[in-house]
Simulated scan of single mutants.
Amino acid sequence: MNHLTKIYGHRFNRVAALTDLSFAVDAGEFVGIMGPSGAGKSTLLNILATIDQPTTGTVTVNGTAIGALSDSATAKFRREQLGFIFQDFNLIGDLTVADNITTPLTLVPPVPANLASRLAAVAKLLHLTALLQRYPAELSRGQQQRVAAARALIAEPSLILADEPTGSLDSLAASELLGYLTQINLQEDRTILMVTHDAYTASYCNRIIFIKDGTFFAEVTRNGSRARFHQQIIDMAATLSGGIAHAPRR
Rank of each mutant, 00 (worst) to 15 (best):
residue 152 A to M: 09
residue 53 Q to G: 06
residue 101 I to G: 07
residue 194 M to V: 04
residue 171 S to V: 15
residue 149 A to N: 02
residue 26 D to W: 04
residue 175 S to R: 04
residue 203 S to T: 03
residue 52 D to F: 11
residue 189 D to Q: 05
residue 55 T to S: 14
residue 199 A to M: 13
residue 123 A to G: 10
residue 225 S to Y: 14
residue 110 P to N: 03
residue 93 G to S: 05
residue 146 R to K: 01
residue 198 D to V: 03
residue 173 A to Y: 10
residue 4 L to G: 05
residue 72 S to C: 03
residue 54 P to E: 15
residue 13 N to G: 08
residue 137 A to Q: 11
residue 103 T to A: 02
residue 90 N to P: 03
residue 32 G to H: 12
residue 177 L to C: 02
residue 37 S to T: 07
residue 158 S to V: 13
residue 225 S to C: 06
residue 119 L to M: 08
residue 249 R to M: 15
residue 3 H to C: 01
residue 204 Y to L: 08
residue 33 I to T: 05
residue 36 P to M: 10
residue 162 A to E: 06
residue 197 H to K: 10
residue 240 L to N: 01
residue 97 V to Y: 01
residue 9 G to S: 07
residue 157 P to K: 12
residue 77 F to Y: 06
residue 193 L to V: 14
residue 105 L to F: 04
residue 26 D to E: 13
residue 20 D to I: 10
residue 225 S to L: 03
residue 1 M to Y: 08
residue 3 H to F: 02
residue 186 L to V: 11
residue 31 V to K: 09
residue 239 T to Y: 08
residue 188 E to I: 06
residue 132 L to R: 03
residue 83 G to E: 00
residue 33 I to K: 06
residue 139 L to A: 01
residue 208 I to G: 06
residue 36 P to F: 14
residue 36 P to V: 07
residue 110 P to W: 08
residue 233 I to S: 12
residue 28 G to Y: 06
residue 104 P to F: 03
residue 205 C to V: 08
residue 7 I to H: 07
residue 213 D to T: 09
residue 177 L to K: 01
residue 171 S to D: 14
residue 117 S to T: 03
residue 227 A to G: 15
residue 209 I to P: 02
residue 20 D to E: 13
residue 110 P to Q: 05
residue 97 V to K: 00
residue 204 Y to I: 04
residue 123 A to C: 07
residue 235 D to N: 12
residue 148 A to V: 14
residue 116 A to N: 08
residue 226 R to S: 04
residue 52 D to Q: 11
residue 42 S to C: 07
residue 4 L to E: 15
residue 180 Y to D: 00
residue 211 I to C: 12
residue 130 A to V: 01
residue 189 D to V: 06
residue 184 I to D: 00
residue 39 A to G: 09
residue 226 R to A: 13
residue 121 A to I: 10
residue 214 G to N: 07
residue 95 L to R: 01
residue 104 P to S: 08
residue 249 R to H: 13
residue 7 I to G: 04
residue 219 E to F: 04
residue 217 F to W: 13
residue 3 H to G: 12
residue 220 V to H: 12
residue 144 Q to L: 02
